[in-house]
Design a protein around this nucleic acid. Structure first.
Lengths: 219, 219
DNA sequence: GCGGTGCTTAAGGAACGCTTAACGGACATT
DNA sequence: AATGTCCGTTAAGCGTTCCTTAAGCACCGC
């Protein structure tokens, strides 16, 4: 599950990035309107957190252009308390929700969950692969009906794999999915997470393709 | 699925060509802006990898002309890290994504896959030749529906052959495909791999053309 | 039969993945 | 504030797989 934060203030950005990552989302950061449009062009994001009042290009313009180009991901607007006009224009332009600065991180997380759930409720119900099921909105994984307590990284890893269960993912690919391109990890993190994931869902569920990467077992 | 690479640097071009072919795409190479425009005129390409900063004609110009003439294939821009302006101009001119040199080949493959899937909604290629099938994404080979456990080198070798099943590949050619020109191998490695591949897929599948090289059997 | 070419086999060693443990940071609880 | 727990990252050791090398053998064409 990949989010994009569009926010020019470094401090706020860092806080939000940290909170979202701890909730198990991969999140990238665009510092201005231009960068936001570049990133959105990739079409890989599942949700956008958009600060209005950006340098270089107004947030509203970004949103308009995004919707016009067919971008469908939910957008949450972040505004100052007094910018009522912006908020209204934002919702007109196709935003799904808004939060007033300064906002509570738990509330932000709740809104994000809600929007993702709403969207997944319509489109993709729950991933199922063999005995395994994964519910992105509820952050829940079951095996044979039994609820498995996965920690955030394990969950993100399994989610990446289960979205394209036949495909082999290389370790760099998985790193990119688990971590925004913010900071690279310089170690065998993926291997370790695969290991702990296997201990919980069963070692046979994840097959390693030597020299290439990992993928789910056939079923 | 046919790609065009526009790139003036020989080394980079060879590397990219090899990687894309290994991912199962047919890819052609235009060395400068002129050649690119000629090739694009044919209108047969499903995706374009465009290096900016070309001799004879700037990459941006190529892209502008292409879009102006109605070309709709996705375009991925390849730029140097510091050429931020180029990147922005490129996206303004209608590019779909960009990568910063030096880029990871796996990441390139992932972006290509993403764009093609988004555009065409189609599946990734699976090679079939007689009883044999090879799926580059899943890294799987079957014979008569039966899954064959190939090790990496065997897989790469079969993939090279099956991409152009009628052609005869010389041993130096195959070496070049299996090993990035990182380091030459000074031995009969290819023969050994052909041997072990034959043991798994059936000796008759690979015919040797004495004094020339190897190819797949007719079917 | 002879030179060249390809095939087969076995073995050393490198590359890769797995596992474990320790450290440090973040958060919750007191 | 202080303490404890949980989680994520690193790093190092170990085991396995698989790649390369080399050497001998078989085959083909001349």
């Amino acid at each position: 599950m990949r989010l994009l934060l569009v926010e020019d203030d470094d401090m706020i950005a860092e806080t939000v990035l940290g909170a979202m990552r701890r909730s198990g989302y991969a999140i990238d950061w665009a510092e201005d309107g231009r960068a936001a449009e570049l990133s959105l062009g990739n079409g890989v994001y599942d949700l956008v957190l958009l600060d209005l009042g950006l340098p270089k290009k107004d947030g509203i313009d970004v949103l308009n252009a995004y919707r016009k180009s067919g971008g469908a991901a939910p957008v949450i607007i972040l505004t100052a308390r007094d910018a009522v006009d912006d908020r209204i224009r934002g919702l007109d332009a196709g935003a799904d929700d808004y939060l007033i600065k300064p906002f509570d991180l738990d509330e932000l997380a709740a809104r994000v969950r809600a929007l993702l759930r709403r969207r997944t409720g319509q489109k993709q119900p729950v991933y199922a692969h063999g005995e395994l099921t994964l519910d992105p909105a509820a952050h829940e994984v079951t095996k044979g009906g039994e609820l498995l307590p996965l920690v955030p990284r394990e969950f993100a890893l399994l989610q990446a794999l289960i979205e394209e269960p036949t495909r082999v993912f290389t370790k760099p690919e998985l790193e990119e999915k688990l971590y925004g391109w913010g900071e690279e990890v310089g170690s065998n993190t993926i291997e370790v997470h695969v290991h702990s994931l296997r201990r919980k869902i069963g070692a046979e569920q994840v097959v390693t393709v030597r020299g290439v990467g990992y993928r789910l077992k056939r079923c």
